[in-house]
Design a protein around this nucleic acid. Structure first.
Lengths: 318, 318
DNA sequence: TCTACATCATTCATTTCTGAATGGTAGTGC
DNA sequence: GCACTACCATTCAGAAATGAATGATGTAGA
């Protein structure tokens, strides 16, 4: 039986010019990056090598994929067509890698975690430190980003998110809620006092807001406060900068309760409480059998749950 | 807009250990071949290199994919799982290559044709010779095989088949019918005479049949002749051998009319005529825009149509 | 049991691929 | 107008991958 199959295959040797699958991967990287130099950095290759690999692919396909300009490269029509195919191929490649990763039953190896910059900065470190001591053979990569990582594309293995993912390939565990409140630094309160728990009083203070994101504005409006982004005295989209502005007394701002308590900030009474954000721990279904991913998920879930629940908000550093 | 996308990407550099896509391709080749040596021959690599590439893939995935024995290699459970993923990836790779090939609008390049060994041997050569003179920049690969090539897997670009393909990705043109008849060489007729046009008379002659294939038997039964494979005096599954046996007077056999006439065989009267086989020219939908494939398709269609229709069965050699 | 065979593993000279450094160029901001 | 920056192309020494030859070993058949 098997011999017959093998013989059948033998009748159809591979075409003389077999496609270089890695070249497709590099093509995809260049198309996504928009420049050879940037893509080279991301793929771990050098810019000359990457350029030559793309040259070779173009020569083999007989098509020009990129127009190389001084501001980077742009896809040709043919390249744009092929990009779709390359993306599909990459999706299968990711599935392959996940399938391989999912088979590992010893808790070891690399695990990539993505979380918002605030969570990564203030909540994850003590948890990961403890994890590093209990499971030293697991290596952790933290991708701190406020953009939503694409777990389907293997941007990361595990994600901490404030929204429930909708894709059926992803499995999500709700591990708690991020309670939010308005706070001010002691120095600010000393200088300006606290507002009364009514809308107009709050708006007359120096408020810290976001620049492009309308998260806070939406929240205020939902709470019945008619206002615009001009109401903010200071705006930034960088949540770390935001946290530091708040801590150094630049104004009244919004922050997770757990974080504000740890920084010694003073709660500001609000006319209506801010609804808490759910915290989800998300991983790809294919990885649920991977021991390392399971271990890291469990530790993060336990650690974050404790950090989010505790009245005394400081997670033990040890 | 585009800049934002690029920046978004920049937040998620590729994982440190990026999958070697070519290694997946080689893994697939080895799994299909069943041995490193055979797969090496097919992929154009040497056996040591292929072995090392598989080693490297196994090391990177942290999984053993093959058990290497003296009779070749066998997939482990993990390998069998991953084979499914690799096949899916290969399907996308083929789609990528077809998409690239389909964009070529100058009739040049490589075109792979598959046809049965008989068609490849007796019908295609004069057509392809003429094509080589009219379109010298097109290079033709002929895959002569009686197995059905898989156009979805890019075993070939164009196929000549006796059955209509069912997959919607394939486009098929019916280019004629292969009329079949019973024939005998003059030397055989001289020695044994011709049978009467009735069943029992035919069965008393020396008949040439197939070994594993039941094609002729099915045809005879459909024609009302109760018989088994023991009725054949000589059996072979190799159609070229079959044709030579027939031509050298080994017995009465079945052959395309066009071919038999060219070989000077004598028609044997049958109780009922054999229904003709339809001849389909098949190509992948993605390649319909490819100039070289179109050109070859057209030439083959015209040439085969003429060869199949003509009462005088010899296609002009020029 | 012995021989023939096909397979995978190892070695080492060779080829190919790679990358740091450099050059050249167009767009950008002052 | 002019320096500056970011990018792609080229060069050449060095690193890595490759393959022919050879070795080792189990299987199949006489």
């Amino acid at each position: 039986m098997n011999d017959v199959d093998a013989r059948h295959d033998a009748d159809f040797p591979l075409p003389a010019s077999a496609l270089d699958w890695n070249a497709v991967r590099l093509f995809l990287a260049v198309a996504r990056a928009g420049s050879l130099t940037l893509a080279a950095g991301r793929t771990g290759l050098s810019q000359p090598t990457l350029g030559r690999r793309i040259d070779a692919l173009e020569a083999q396909l007989g098509t020009t994929l990129f127009l190389r300009g001084r501001r980077g490269v742009v896809l040709t029509d043919a390249g744009a067509d092929l990009l779709v195919r390359a993306e599909a191929m990459a999706a299968e490649a990711d599935a392959f890698q996940r399938a391989a990763t999912g088979r590992k039953t010893v808790p070891a190896g690399d695990v990539r975690i993505t979380a918002s910059r605030v969570v990564s900065t203030y909540l994850l470190p003590p948890i990961l430190t403890a994890l590093g001591q209990s499971d030293p053979q697991i290596h952790i990569d933290v991708v701190a980003s406020d953009e939503v990582a694409n777990l389907l594309r293997r941007d990361a293995d595990i994600a901490v998110r404030m929204v429930r993912p909708t894709q059926p390939e992803l499995i999500a565990r709700k591990i708690g809620e991020l309670r939010l409140g308005a706070f001010a630094a002691p120095s600010y309160v000393q200088a300006h006092g606290l507002p009364e728990p009514e809308a107009q009083s709050l708006l007359s203070h120096r408020l810290l807001g976001y620049d492009r994101s309308t998260l806070i504005l939406d929240g205020l409006r939902a709470a019945g406060l008619q206002t615009t982004r001009d109401a903010f005295a200071l705006r930034t989209d960088d949540q770390i900068v935001y946290a530091h502005l708040l801590a150094s007394g630049a104004g009244i701002g919004f922050s997770p309760v757990a974080l504000a308590r740890r920084q010694g900030l003073i709660p500001v009474p609000l006319p209506v409480p801010i609804p808490p954000l759910p915290v989800w721990l998300v991983a790809h279904r294919d990885l649920r059998t991977n021991a390392a991913v399971r271990r890291v998920s469990d530790v993060i879930a336990r650690g974050l749950t404790r950090a989010l629940q505790s009245k005394e908000a400081a997670p033990e550093p040890r």
